[in-house]
Simulated scan of single mutants.
Amino acid sequence: MNFVFDIDGTLCFDGKTIELDIQEAIEQLIVAGHKVIFASARPIRDLRPVLPGKFHHFQLIGGNGAFTSFEGKIECVSFDEDTKIELYSFIEKYNCSYLADSDWDFAYTGEQGHPIYHHINQVDAKNIQLKELNNLSKLVLFNVEDSLLKELATLPVSITRYKSEDIYDISPHGINKVRGIHNFGIRDFIAFGNDQNDKCLFEQAIHSVCVGTQDVKKYASEVIYKEDVAKRIRNFLRQDIPCV
């Protein structure tokens, strides 16, 4: 079976590491013949430092589906030129703070104390000017006004709100984690997640596990707490689930 794991709030609870017990449970899935895919809102650039090196060559989905990586090769979907120009215009009009991602480098104007800033891999990537990015594949906006939301809704984009961080995640239209999974030719999967960007996973999975009690739990097959993650992964090994 294909197992799709979100990262932050699902496997990683400090923004930096995955507990050893959870790592070992995932490895047991692999040894048993199952396939593991990691799917995150983080771009691949920021996803790799959280994952142990032994998982870097796996199928990775970043930017909620805007980025995919396998065997270290990154592919991305960018905003079309007209949409990009409109986004530039809105940012200037509303004087927005933002995190903009390309396939590797980024542009950041938010506060350095914001949690998202500490997730950026600044060792291997550069913070450059927005319009100097080779491509624009993902945009996070801070302190968004209602009037800006209305204007964003007129564009061919996908918008996800993260209440806990008070940010809006903007991606090209139709981009989500399921799109990334389908890009790898995968249709049947079991999903672990915890936030609104995992709703699409829960709706498409043959079984889904929500970690924590956020609103998205109503779309999941079951709900567990973070201390139960490794145990729940291992429990799947005891079930009659076909391998890939």
Rank of each mutant, 00 (worst) to 15 (best):
S89L: 05
I120C: 11
N95T: 10
A191I: 08
H173N: 12
I91W: 06
S158A: 13
Y98W: 05
A191F: 08
I170R: 00
N176A: 04
L201G: 09
Q204G: 03
K93Y: 02
K126G: 00
K131W: 05
E165V: 10
I175W: 03
H119Q: 15
R161T: 09
V123Q: 14
A153H: 05
E203H: 05
I175Y: 05
E86F: 10
V209Q: 06
D124C: 07
Y88L: 01
L149H: 04
V178L: 08
C76P: 00
P172G: 09
N197Y: 04
C76M: 13
I170M: 01
Y117P: 07
E132S: 12
V178E: 00
F142G: 04
I85C: 07
Y94I: 00
G174N: 09
E86Q: 15
F189L: 07
V144H: 04
N135Y: 06
G110F: 03
D124I: 05
S69R: 12
D169T: 02
T83R: 08
I128Q: 02
E145S: 13
A125H: 11
K177H: 07
W104G: 00
V144P: 06
D188H: 11
S208L: 02
C210Q: 11
D82V: 13
I85W: 08
R187M: 13
K126H: 14
S137Y: 00
I74F: 10
D103T: 11
T109P: 10
N183G: 15
D105N: 15
V178T: 09
N194V: 06
I116A: 08
N197S: 09
E203R: 13
Y108W: 08
V140M: 10
F202N: 12
D188P: 00
S137A: 12
Y108P: 09
S164K: 12
